[in-house]
Design a protein around this nucleic acid. Structure first.
Length: 286
DNA sequence: ACCCAGGGCCACT
DNA sequence: AGTGGCCATGGG
């Protein structure tokens, strides 16, 4: 099996990224090796040391796909170094989360999965997304005993080629399964998909909007409120200045910062700081 | 059985 | 503009 060695100047920690709540299709196979499903592919990322991983792909695929995915050109250690040294909590959070990077994930996948994410914990999100992929995504192959499917395309999501659903959007009931755990989010997904199908260039158009305009556009989707819009902008459009506030971040702000935290202090990297806060706060059960 | 989860919508003020 | 009830599901 070919392996491409990725050597960074700053830190990368696959386990922390996998557990950081930004991606839901990473699976740890053996200690330090993660099966990553993205862009219709399945690859194995392996931790070598604090700055080095390997990917089972050739150099051209790395240059074309995974280099951007891992955002190797942003210096995350430098962002951690910019943390106010008088802020004990954030200093600890940066240290604790060192190695987390903000992946450049597919906008559609990010939008849909974060609509799904509302009022679910991370294991439930993962399980729900896998069901959706199995419902109408393209079968990639068997890996580690799992049948792995790509995240569905827009057309597949709209039910046009959803074989298991008999053409009806994700209607798992027809397949004898009890929906795909989307629950009340089902119409949100349907309306969002419908809007995108009717505006095929919308996501591409959104990529060139400035942060504020992108945010307003995201809020126009059914089932997308402040939090999901922030997560989608941060993780799906790689806008590192968005600062999503979920129950964990709210808990940190209330318990550690007395109810208010000025995220603008860390502009234009507020979102990166947010990730360290989230990961530390959630892991340490603040 | 219970509580909660990377919330948002809608109907009220 | 701000608040509260409600929403469907599964993990711990």
């Amino acid at each position: 099996m070919k392996k491409y060695v990725v050597s960074l100047n700053d830190s990368i920690d696959l386990k922390k990224i996998a557990d950081s709540g930004q991606c839901f299709r990473w699976k740890e196979i053996t200690d330090g090796t993660f099966r990553v499903t993205a862009f219709g592919m399945v690859r194995y990322f392996t931790q070598v040391d604090d700055h080095t991983i390997t990917i089972d792909c050739d150099e051209s695929e790395y240059q074309n796909v995974w280099k951007d995915y891992l955002d190797v050109d942003t210096d995350y250690d430098r962002i951690i170094a910019s943390i106010d040294s008088g802020d004990i909590f954030l200093t600890n959070a940066g240290d604790y989360g060192r190695g987390i990077r903000i992946l450049r994930q597919d906008p559609l996948e990010t939008l849909i999965t974060f609509i799904i994410s509302q009022r679910k914990n991370i294991p439930a999100i993962k399980s729900c997304v896998e069901k959706l992929c199995a419902a109408c995504g393209t079968y990639i192959g068997q890996f580690d005993g799992d049948e792995v499917y790509a995240f569905p395309s827009l057309v597949q999501l709209s039910g046009l080629s959803c074989e298991k659903c008999g053409g009806e959007f994700c209607s798992y009931k027809k397949a004898g399964m009890d929906s795909c755990s989307l629950g009340y989010r089902m119409p949100y997904i349907q309306e969002t998909v419908s809007r995108l199908v009717m505006n095929p260039d919308l996501l591409e158009y959104m990529m060139q909007l400035d942060d504020k305009a992108l945010y307003e556009e995201l809020l126009g989707f059914k089932g997308v409120g402040k939090k999901v819009a922030n997560c989608t902008a941060l993780f799906g459009f790689h806008r590192l200045d968005f600062f999503p506030i979920d129950v964990w971040i709210k808990r940190v702000i209330d318990d550690v910062y007395g109810g208010s935290f000025d995220d603008r202090r860390y502009s234009p990297y507020a979102g990166v700081i947010q990730q360290y806060m989230f990961y530390y706060g959630r892991s340490e059960g603040i």
